[in-house]
């Protein structure tokens, strides 16, 4: 008998902006879809959306409309492919950044109501450590901390892990490095982060992979197309496919 499956929910988050959250979230979604999964991407940057920009979407309804005027959340999902839905957010709506508890509860209900149609729900959070970022991080099952090997990105990612563990009871984080010059740099950077986290925080972190700097990424962003489709043989795309494989193992564990 088929049992009702709950999707794997993940968020890509970083503290610092400009690390590549949206790009990685979108390409990871495409990679998972290519492997036969149904994926919903939620633009968690509720006030300054950019998933739609990255994908050249023409947005009719957003999360904001769902919350404000009760638009049907399922109808707000834009399907790029049969198994790839995008729930877009609004651009330039500052109220959405400071979600109050009541709106958070409402958002939780909305997401829960549409989640069962997918195998994966991937939230691309905003930068910073604002209420919506913290809320999405608590809402999902798995937190992917994305960082680049820059000192500021390190500090912000560490600060985010610290807040989530101390104030919001999260105790397991997946770490992905973006914009590395080599796989080796990714691993070495991870070792440093792991050392500091183990020394100061009571949480476990797990290395999930590294995405190399690659010209195709910039080109894809400018052309508003996913690089896993534009250049599937590039180093960056191959790294994202590897990442997708590891994430599918999370689902196997969960099921």
């Amino acid at each position: 008998m088929a049992r009702m499956k709950t999707p794997v929910t993940l968020c890509v988050t970083s503290g610092k902006g400009g690390v590549g959250k949206t790009s990685i979230a979108v390409n990871l979604a495409f990679a998972l879809v290519q492997k036969g999964q149904r994926v919903l991407v939620v633009d968690g940057d509720l006030g300054l959306a950019n998933v739609d920009v990255l994908l050249r979407l023409s947005v009719q309804r957003t999360i904001c409309d769902v919350l404000d005027s009760g638009a049907d959340p399922l109808e707000s999902v834009i399907y790029l492919e049969e198994s790839l839905g995008i729930l877009p957010a609004s651009s330039g709506v500052p109220e959405m950044v400071t979600l109050g508890p009541e709106e958070q509860a409402q958002l939780g209900e909305v997401l829960t109501s549409i989640m069962s149609h997918f195998d994966y729900v991937l939230v691309d959070t905003a930068a910073g450590i604002g209420p919506s970022v913290l809320w999405f991080n608590r809402f999902v099952d798995h937190n992917i901390i994305l960082l680049s090997p820059d000192p500021t990105s390190f500090t912000d990612a560490y600060a985010l892990i610290k807040i989530l563990s101390r104030d919001y009871d999260r105790d397991y984080f997946y770490v992905v490095f973006n914009l590395v010059s080599s796989e080796r740099e990714g691993r070495q950077s991870y070792k440093i982060l792991e050392g500091v986290v183990n020394k100061f925080l009571d949480v476990d972190i797990e290395y999930l992979g590294a995405i190399p700097q690659d010209k195709v990424i910039h080109k894809a962003v400018r052309e508003q197309l996913p690089f896993v489709q534009q250049a599937p043989q590039s180093n960056a795309a191959r790294a994202v496919f590897d990442l997708a494989d590891r994430i599918r193992m999370l689902k196997e564990k969960q099921d």
């Binding site: 390190f154 600060a159 010059s181 080599s182 020394k199 700097q213 910039h218």
Partner: peptide, 26 residues
Amino acid sequence: VTDEEKKALFNNPIGLKSERDNSKGF
């Protein structure tokens, strides 16, 4: 994030920057 934590993040034996191969940057 305390000073101690920051020190641990940056005063590491490997060195973050030294490993970067900037010639590959765009």
